[in-house]
Protein backbone atom coordinates (compact mmCIF):
# COMPACT_ATOMS: atom_id res chain seq x y z
CA UNK A 1 0.00 0.00 0.00
CA UNK A 2 1.40 3.32 -0.99
CA UNK A 3 0.15 6.43 0.75
CA UNK A 4 0.43 9.79 -0.91
CA UNK A 5 2.36 11.91 1.52
CA UNK A 6 2.05 15.65 1.71
CA UNK A 7 5.39 17.04 2.76
CA UNK A 8 5.56 20.17 4.85
CA UNK A 9 6.65 22.35 1.91
CA UNK A 10 3.69 21.68 -0.32
CA UNK A 11 1.52 21.92 2.78
CA UNK A 12 2.65 25.54 3.19
CA UNK A 13 1.67 26.28 -0.41
CA UNK A 14 -1.64 24.49 0.08
CA UNK A 15 -2.40 26.60 3.17
CA UNK A 16 -1.66 29.70 1.11
CA UNK A 17 -3.98 28.74 -1.75
CA UNK A 18 -6.78 27.82 0.67
CA UNK A 19 -6.25 31.08 2.53
CA UNK A 20 -6.54 33.06 -0.70
CA UNK A 21 -9.72 31.25 -1.78
CA UNK A 22 -11.30 31.69 1.67
CA UNK A 23 -10.33 35.34 1.82
CA UNK A 24 -11.64 36.12 -1.64
CA UNK A 25 -14.83 34.13 -1.14
CA UNK A 26 -15.33 35.93 2.20
CA UNK A 27 -14.90 39.24 0.44
CA UNK A 28 -17.40 38.22 -2.23
CA UNK A 29 -20.00 37.31 0.39
CA UNK A 30 -19.53 40.34 2.66
CA UNK A 31 -19.10 42.99 -0.03
CA UNK A 32 -21.24 41.51 -2.83
CA UNK A 33 -23.30 44.70 -2.90
CA UNK A 34 -20.17 46.78 -3.45
CA UNK A 35 -19.21 44.89 -6.60
CA UNK A 36 -16.62 42.57 -5.15
CA UNK A 37 -18.02 39.64 -7.15
CA UNK A 38 -17.31 41.20 -10.55
CA UNK A 39 -14.43 39.77 -12.56
CA UNK A 40 -12.99 43.26 -12.84
CA UNK A 41 -12.31 43.41 -9.09
CA UNK A 42 -10.02 40.45 -9.45
CA UNK A 43 -8.39 41.90 -12.55
CA UNK A 44 -7.86 45.19 -10.70
CA UNK A 45 -5.90 43.33 -8.05
CA UNK A 46 -3.66 42.07 -10.84
CA UNK A 47 -3.41 45.54 -12.44
CA UNK A 48 -2.56 47.26 -9.17
CA UNK A 49 0.06 44.70 -8.27
CA UNK A 50 1.67 44.04 -11.66
CA UNK A 51 4.88 45.74 -10.53
CA UNK A 52 4.85 43.85 -7.27
CA UNK A 53 4.51 40.54 -9.13
CA UNK A 54 7.72 41.22 -11.07
CA UNK A 55 9.52 42.34 -7.91
CA UNK A 56 8.31 39.33 -5.95
CA UNK A 57 9.53 36.97 -8.71
CA UNK A 58 13.03 38.42 -8.38
CA UNK A 59 12.78 38.33 -4.61
CA UNK A 60 11.86 34.66 -4.75
CA UNK A 61 15.03 33.85 -6.72
CA UNK A 62 17.16 35.68 -4.15
CA UNK A 63 15.37 34.08 -1.22
CA UNK A 64 15.84 30.65 -2.77
CA UNK A 65 19.60 31.14 -2.42
CA UNK A 66 19.02 31.87 1.26
CA UNK A 67 19.52 35.62 0.92
CA UNK A 68 17.22 38.59 0.93
CA UNK A 69 16.98 41.86 -0.99
CA UNK A 70 15.33 44.77 0.79
CA UNK A 71 16.52 47.40 -1.66
CA UNK A 72 13.67 46.70 -4.10
CA UNK A 73 11.15 49.28 -2.85
CA UNK A 74 13.61 52.15 -3.06
CA UNK A 75 14.88 50.91 -6.40
CA UNK A 76 11.32 51.06 -7.74
CA UNK A 77 11.01 54.62 -6.42
CA UNK A 78 14.29 55.56 -8.09
CA UNK A 79 13.15 54.00 -11.38
CA UNK A 80 9.87 55.93 -11.29
CA UNK A 81 11.72 59.16 -10.51
CA UNK A 82 14.21 58.63 -13.35
CA UNK A 83 11.34 57.93 -15.75
CA UNK A 84 9.35 60.95 -14.62
CA UNK A 85 12.21 63.43 -14.51
CA UNK A 86 13.73 61.98 -17.68
CA UNK A 87 10.54 62.48 -19.62
CA UNK A 88 9.42 65.79 -18.16
CA UNK A 89 12.67 67.64 -17.47
CA UNK A 90 15.40 66.10 -19.60
CA UNK A 91 13.09 65.54 -22.56
CA UNK A 92 14.27 62.01 -23.28
CA UNK A 93 11.99 59.54 -25.00
CA UNK A 94 10.57 56.77 -22.85
CA UNK A 95 12.06 53.71 -24.66
CA UNK A 96 15.57 55.10 -24.10
CA UNK A 97 14.78 55.71 -20.45
CA UNK A 98 13.37 52.21 -20.02
CA UNK A 99 16.60 50.72 -21.38
CA UNK A 100 18.56 53.04 -19.10
CA UNK A 101 16.54 51.86 -16.11
CA UNK A 102 17.13 48.21 -16.96
CA UNK A 103 20.87 48.91 -17.25
CA UNK A 104 20.86 50.73 -13.91
CA UNK A 105 19.06 47.74 -12.39
CA UNK A 106 21.73 45.34 -13.66
CA UNK A 107 24.57 47.56 -12.38
CA UNK A 108 22.83 47.96 -9.02
CA UNK A 109 22.47 44.19 -8.77
CA UNK A 110 26.08 43.65 -9.80
CA UNK A 111 27.40 45.87 -7.01
CA UNK A 112 25.13 44.34 -4.38
CA UNK A 113 25.75 40.81 -5.61
CA UNK A 114 29.51 41.34 -5.65
CA UNK A 115 29.51 42.57 -2.04
CA UNK A 116 27.35 39.65 -0.95
CA UNK A 117 28.80 36.79 -2.97
CA UNK A 118 32.48 37.66 -3.25
CA UNK A 119 33.04 39.72 -0.09
CA UNK A 120 30.86 37.55 2.15
CA UNK A 121 28.91 40.42 3.69
CA UNK A 122 25.46 39.72 5.11
CA UNK A 123 22.86 40.25 2.36
CA UNK A 124 20.69 42.25 4.70
CA UNK A 125 23.33 44.88 5.46
CA UNK A 126 24.30 45.30 1.81
CA UNK A 127 20.77 45.58 0.52
CA UNK A 128 19.80 47.88 3.37
CA UNK A 129 22.59 50.22 2.34
CA UNK A 130 21.31 49.82 -1.23
CA UNK A 131 17.82 50.69 -0.03
CA UNK A 132 18.93 53.94 1.60
CA UNK A 133 21.21 54.74 -1.32
CA UNK A 134 18.39 54.39 -3.84
CA UNK A 135 15.93 56.32 -1.66
CA UNK A 136 18.46 59.11 -1.20
CA UNK A 137 19.24 59.15 -4.90
CA UNK A 138 15.53 59.60 -5.59
CA UNK A 139 15.69 62.83 -3.58
CA UNK A 140 18.93 63.84 -5.25
CA UNK A 141 17.35 63.52 -8.70
CA UNK A 142 14.30 65.55 -7.76
CA UNK A 143 12.61 66.48 -4.50
CA UNK A 144 9.21 67.33 -5.90
CA UNK A 145 6.48 65.14 -7.25
CA UNK A 146 6.74 64.87 -11.01
CA UNK A 147 3.80 63.63 -13.05
CA UNK A 148 4.24 62.13 -16.49
CA UNK A 149 2.01 63.77 -19.05
CA UNK A 150 4.00 64.68 -22.13
CA UNK A 151 5.41 61.42 -23.50
CA UNK A 152 3.05 59.90 -26.10
CA UNK A 153 4.45 56.37 -26.07
CA UNK A 154 4.34 56.17 -22.31
CA UNK A 155 0.83 57.54 -21.92
CA UNK A 156 -0.51 55.24 -24.65
CA UNK A 157 1.13 52.24 -23.01
CA UNK A 158 -0.38 53.22 -19.68
CA UNK A 159 -3.82 53.81 -21.14
CA UNK A 160 -3.91 50.66 -23.22
CA UNK A 161 -6.86 48.46 -22.28
CA UNK A 162 -6.80 44.83 -23.28
CA UNK A 163 -10.44 43.81 -23.19
CA UNK A 164 -11.43 40.28 -22.36
CA UNK A 165 -14.05 38.58 -24.55
CA UNK A 166 -15.99 37.23 -21.56
CA UNK A 167 -17.26 38.24 -18.16
CA UNK A 168 -18.97 41.45 -19.19
CA UNK A 169 -21.99 42.74 -17.31
CA UNK A 170 -24.51 45.55 -17.47
CA UNK A 171 -24.02 48.30 -14.92
CA UNK A 172 -26.85 50.28 -13.33
CA UNK A 173 -27.18 52.58 -16.31
CA UNK A 174 -27.41 49.64 -18.68
CA UNK A 175 -24.03 50.17 -20.30
CA UNK A 176 -22.03 47.03 -21.03
CA UNK A 177 -18.90 46.90 -18.85
CA UNK A 178 -16.21 44.80 -20.46
CA UNK A 179 -13.49 43.55 -18.10
CA UNK A 180 -10.01 44.57 -19.18
CA UNK A 181 -6.35 44.07 -18.41
CA UNK A 182 -3.44 46.48 -18.69
CA UNK A 183 -0.24 45.75 -20.57
CA UNK A 184 1.63 45.64 -17.26
CA UNK A 185 -0.28 42.53 -16.22
CA UNK A 186 0.77 40.75 -19.42
CA UNK A 187 4.40 41.72 -18.74
CA UNK A 188 4.16 40.52 -15.15
CA UNK A 189 2.60 37.19 -16.11
CA UNK A 190 5.26 36.62 -18.78
CA UNK A 191 7.93 37.35 -16.16
CA UNK A 192 6.41 34.82 -13.77
CA UNK A 193 6.25 32.12 -16.45
CA UNK A 194 9.81 32.81 -17.66
CA UNK A 195 11.20 32.76 -14.12
CA UNK A 196 9.31 29.54 -13.42
CA UNK A 197 10.75 27.88 -16.54
CA UNK A 198 14.20 29.21 -15.72
CA UNK A 199 14.10 27.90 -12.16
CA UNK A 200 12.81 24.54 -13.30
CA UNK A 201 14.78 23.74 -16.43
CA UNK A 202 18.00 25.74 -16.67
CA UNK A 203 21.32 24.95 -15.04
CA UNK A 204 21.28 28.35 -13.32
CA UNK A 205 17.84 27.69 -11.86
CA UNK A 206 18.77 24.29 -10.50
CA UNK A 207 21.99 25.72 -9.01
CA UNK A 208 19.92 28.30 -7.13
CA UNK A 209 17.89 25.54 -5.47
CA UNK A 210 21.04 23.54 -4.75
CA UNK A 211 22.81 26.47 -3.08
CA UNK A 212 19.78 27.34 -0.99
CA UNK A 213 19.38 23.73 0.09
CA UNK A 214 22.92 23.32 1.27
CA UNK A 215 25.69 25.67 0.27
CA UNK A 216 28.49 23.34 1.32
CA UNK A 217 27.29 20.35 -0.62
CA UNK A 218 26.63 22.60 -3.61
CA UNK A 219 30.26 23.69 -3.48
CA UNK A 220 31.42 20.10 -3.16
CA UNK A 221 29.27 19.18 -6.15
CA UNK A 222 31.34 21.60 -8.17
CA UNK A 223 28.83 24.40 -8.55
CA UNK A 224 30.14 27.94 -8.70
CA UNK A 225 28.31 29.22 -5.64
CA UNK A 226 29.61 32.79 -5.75
CA UNK A 227 28.79 33.29 -9.42
CA UNK A 228 25.28 31.88 -9.00
CA UNK A 229 24.61 34.14 -6.01
CA UNK A 230 25.86 37.16 -7.93
CA UNK A 231 23.60 36.24 -10.85
CA UNK A 232 20.62 35.84 -8.51
CA UNK A 233 21.04 39.38 -7.15
CA UNK A 234 21.50 40.78 -10.64
CA UNK A 235 18.33 38.98 -11.71
CA UNK A 236 16.45 40.38 -8.71
CA UNK A 237 17.48 43.96 -9.44
CA UNK A 238 16.74 43.49 -13.14
CA UNK A 239 13.25 42.16 -12.46
CA UNK A 240 12.77 44.96 -9.93
CA UNK A 241 13.55 47.44 -12.68
CA UNK A 242 10.94 45.82 -14.93
CA UNK A 243 8.61 46.01 -11.93
CA UNK A 244 9.55 49.66 -11.51
CA UNK A 245 8.49 50.42 -15.07
CA UNK A 246 5.21 48.57 -14.54
CA UNK A 247 4.72 50.45 -11.26
CA UNK A 248 5.33 53.75 -12.99
CA UNK A 249 2.90 52.87 -15.78
CA UNK A 250 0.35 52.49 -13.01
CA UNK A 251 1.08 55.63 -11.00
CA UNK A 252 2.35 57.87 -13.84
CA UNK A 253 4.44 59.89 -11.38
CA UNK A 254 7.68 59.98 -9.48
CA UNK A 255 7.86 61.00 -5.81
CA UNK A 256 10.45 60.46 -3.11
CA UNK A 257 8.01 58.57 -0.93
CA UNK A 258 6.82 56.20 -3.65
CA UNK A 259 6.72 52.45 -3.08
CA UNK A 260 7.67 52.67 0.60
CA UNK A 261 7.24 49.26 2.13
CA UNK A 262 7.16 47.52 -1.25
CA UNK A 263 10.10 45.36 -0.14
CA UNK A 264 7.98 44.25 2.79
CA UNK A 265 5.14 43.28 0.45
CA UNK A 266 7.51 41.42 -1.87
CA UNK A 267 9.13 39.50 0.99
CA UNK A 268 5.84 38.66 2.61
CA UNK A 269 4.42 37.54 -0.74
CA UNK A 270 7.32 35.15 -1.19
CA UNK A 271 7.16 33.86 2.37
CA UNK A 272 3.39 33.47 2.30
CA UNK A 273 3.80 31.72 -1.06
CA UNK A 274 5.87 29.00 0.55
CA UNK A 275 9.45 30.17 -0.02
CA UNK A 276 11.57 29.15 2.94
CA UNK A 277 13.61 31.95 4.49
CA UNK A 278 16.51 29.57 4.81
CA UNK A 279 16.37 28.99 1.06
CA UNK A 280 16.16 25.97 -1.16
CA UNK A 281 12.39 25.55 -1.16
CA UNK A 282 9.89 27.67 -2.98
CA UNK A 283 8.07 28.35 -6.17
CA UNK A 284 7.45 31.50 -8.11
CA UNK A 285 3.76 30.62 -8.59
CA UNK A 286 3.46 30.49 -4.81
CA UNK A 287 4.77 34.06 -4.74
CA UNK A 288 2.13 35.02 -7.30
CA UNK A 289 -0.55 33.67 -4.96
CA UNK A 290 1.18 35.56 -2.14
CA UNK A 291 0.90 38.80 -4.11
CA UNK A 292 -2.77 38.06 -4.78
CA UNK A 293 -3.35 37.58 -1.04
CA UNK A 294 -1.66 40.90 -0.32
CA UNK A 295 -3.74 42.53 -3.04
CA UNK A 296 -6.94 41.01 -1.69
CA UNK A 297 -6.18 42.31 1.80
CA UNK A 298 -5.68 45.88 0.62
CA UNK A 299 -8.67 45.55 -1.69
CA UNK A 300 -10.85 44.40 1.21
CA UNK A 301 -9.62 47.27 3.39
CA UNK A 302 -10.35 49.74 0.60
CA UNK A 303 -13.79 48.29 -0.15
CA UNK A 304 -14.70 48.52 3.52
CA UNK A 305 -14.03 52.25 3.28
CA UNK A 306 -14.12 52.90 7.02
CA UNK A 307 -10.77 51.34 7.90
CA UNK A 308 -7.51 53.30 7.82
CA UNK A 309 -5.18 52.13 5.07
CA UNK A 310 -2.48 51.18 7.57
CA UNK A 311 -4.69 48.20 8.49
CA UNK A 312 -3.57 46.42 5.34
CA UNK A 313 0.07 46.82 6.49
CA UNK A 314 -0.75 45.40 9.88
CA UNK A 315 -2.68 42.42 8.51
CA UNK A 316 0.15 41.66 6.06
CA UNK A 317 2.66 41.80 8.90
CA UNK A 318 0.53 39.47 11.01
CA UNK A 319 0.24 37.01 8.12
CA UNK A 320 4.00 37.20 7.55
CA UNK A 321 4.61 36.56 11.23
CA UNK A 322 2.23 33.61 11.17
CA UNK A 323 3.94 32.02 8.16
CA UNK A 324 7.45 32.62 9.51
CA UNK A 325 6.54 30.92 12.77
CA UNK A 326 4.88 28.10 10.83
CA UNK A 327 8.08 27.60 8.83
CA UNK A 328 10.15 27.56 11.98
CA UNK A 329 7.83 25.02 13.59
CA UNK A 330 7.99 22.78 10.50
CA UNK A 331 11.79 23.04 10.52
CA UNK A 332 11.86 21.98 14.18
CA UNK A 333 9.60 18.99 13.47
CA UNK A 334 11.88 17.97 10.59
CA UNK A 335 14.93 18.23 12.82
CA UNK A 336 13.38 16.14 15.55
CA UNK A 337 12.45 13.43 13.02
CA UNK A 338 16.09 13.12 12.04
Amino acid sequence: MKKTKINSNSLLLLITVVLFVVMYAGGCIIYSSKGFTHLQTFLNILINNAGLICVASGMTCVMLTGGIDISVGSLVAMDCMILAVGIEQWGWSSPVLMVLILVIGVVFGLVQGFCIAYLDIQPFIVTMAGMFFARGMTAVICRNQVSIVSDKIFTTLAGLKIELPFGGYMNKKGILQVPYLRITVIVALIVVILVYLMLKYTKFGRSIYAIGGNQQSATLMGLNVKKTKLKAYVLSSFLTSIGGICYCLNTMAGTTQQATGLEMNAISSSVIGGTLLTGGVGNVFGSLVGVLINGTISSLVKTNGKLISSWSNIITAILLCFFIILQSVFAKIKDSKK
Partner: peptide, 14 residues
Protein backbone atom coordinates in the same frame (compact mmCIF):
# COMPACT_ATOMS: atom_id res chain seq x y z
CA UNK B 1 18.80 68.05 2.52
CA UNK B 2 17.85 65.34 5.01
CA UNK B 3 16.14 63.38 2.25
CA UNK B 4 19.40 63.20 0.32
CA UNK B 5 21.82 62.41 3.14
CA UNK B 6 21.05 58.65 3.17
CA UNK B 7 23.10 58.40 -0.04
CA UNK B 8 26.28 59.37 1.80
CA UNK B 9 25.48 57.28 4.84
CA UNK B 10 24.79 54.23 2.69
CA UNK B 11 28.14 54.64 0.95
CA UNK B 12 29.91 54.94 4.33
CA UNK B 13 28.18 51.79 5.62
CA UNK B 14 29.17 49.81 2.54
Amino acid sequence: STAQSPVFKAIVVI
